[in-house]
């Protein structure tokens, strides 16, 4: 039997899913053990038990000076920024994507412009954002928007253009105005694709968030990581990295769930 036709059973499949995670953990544990054996005060690869200890401390014990549990405080600050940035981008992208995809006049005006703007490296304009919007929350949210909005607009307008011409013509013969076509034909078909696009842009969004927090901030997950870097506190950094990964993964799962729950018509036929 060919390899392409062989499928693992349920148990083996679960084992295979777990395999790379377990392998990574074991490799880290062995490396850490080897380094600690040579130098017990090594800070680069703290033992897994040490990381777990640190994680418990970070999650439960308040900071002595500010009386706050900084971990949750950071998480909240970062999530607010991320949600605002991604949410505003998504809303703008849907509106502009529909306009560019449906209206030839807007397409002629904006499509080329968006294509050029999307080539600007967002981090290169970060200093401008700090100068214009100050060091507060606004500049971080704007960086996320600058970073992912052009991609979202290009993706969504392309999706609108992919709607078969026949379907638009059919709506026209039913007497639909441009507005009704946008609202009742294009928008509903765009929503599942929006979720797809947002899922894809979550990675870059986190990147820009952490970059902005690393450079100028007073709280946030990225800020904390770059702060404790000075003390080589690998246990704290790794805890935060694992937490960020988990958050990103859960967000992705939620978006996928929304897509399945609310857009049942996208499921394959029969």
């Amino acid at each position: 039997m060919r390899l392409i036709n062989r499928h693992p059973g349920i148990v083996l499949r679960a084992a295979l899913v777990a395999l790379p995670f377990v392998a990574l953990f074991i490799a880290y544990a062995l490396g850490s053990q080897a380094r600690l054996a040579v130098n017990p005060s090594d800070k680069l690869m703290p033992a897994p038990s040490k990381i777990a200890e640190t994680a418990v401390r970070l999650l439960t014990e308040p900071d002595r000076r500010s009386e706050k549990i900084l971990f949750w405080y950071d998480t909240w600050a970062s999530l607010v920024r991320l949600t605002l940035g991604v949410g505003i981008s998504a809303v703008l992208a849907v509106i502009l994507g529909l306009l560019i995809g449906l209206l030839p006049y807007v397409r002629a005006t904006l499509a080329g412009f968006v294509a050029v703007v999307s080539m600007i490296p967002p981090l290169a304009v970060l200093p401008i954002l700090f100068i214009v919007f100050g060091l507060g929350e606004l500049s971080k949210v704007v960086l996320i928007i600058v970073g992912i909005l052009p991609f979202l607009i290009r993706d969504l307008s392309a999706r609108v253009l992919e709607i078969p011409r026949e379907m638009i013509v059919k709506a026209e013969t039913l007497g639909a105005s441009s507005w009704v076509i946008a609202l009742r034909v294009a928008l509903p078909q765009l929503m599942p694709r929006l979720i797809q696009a947002v899922r894809l842009s979550l990675g870059p969004a986190w990147l820009f968030l952490i970059a902005a927090e690393a450079i100028a901030s007073e709280q946030g997950l990225g800020y904390r990581i770059f702060l404790v870097r000075r003390f080589l506190a690998m246990d704290v950094i790794l805890t935060y990295v694992i937490w960020i990964t988990l958050l990103a993964f859960v967000m992705d799962m939620i978006l996928r769930g929304i897509s399945r729950r609310f857009f049942p018509w996208t499921e394959a036929s029969l």
Partner: peptide, 24 residues
């Protein structure tokens, strides 16, 4: 591509009358 995939069968037929309205 003559029917709207995001509308149920019933809504597709209703669309034949309702799409001419300002809000569709």
């Amino acid at each position: 591509y003559s029917v709207f995939p995001h509308l149920s069968v019933l809504e597709n037929v209703v669309a034949g009358e309702s799409f001419r309205r300002p809000w569709g």
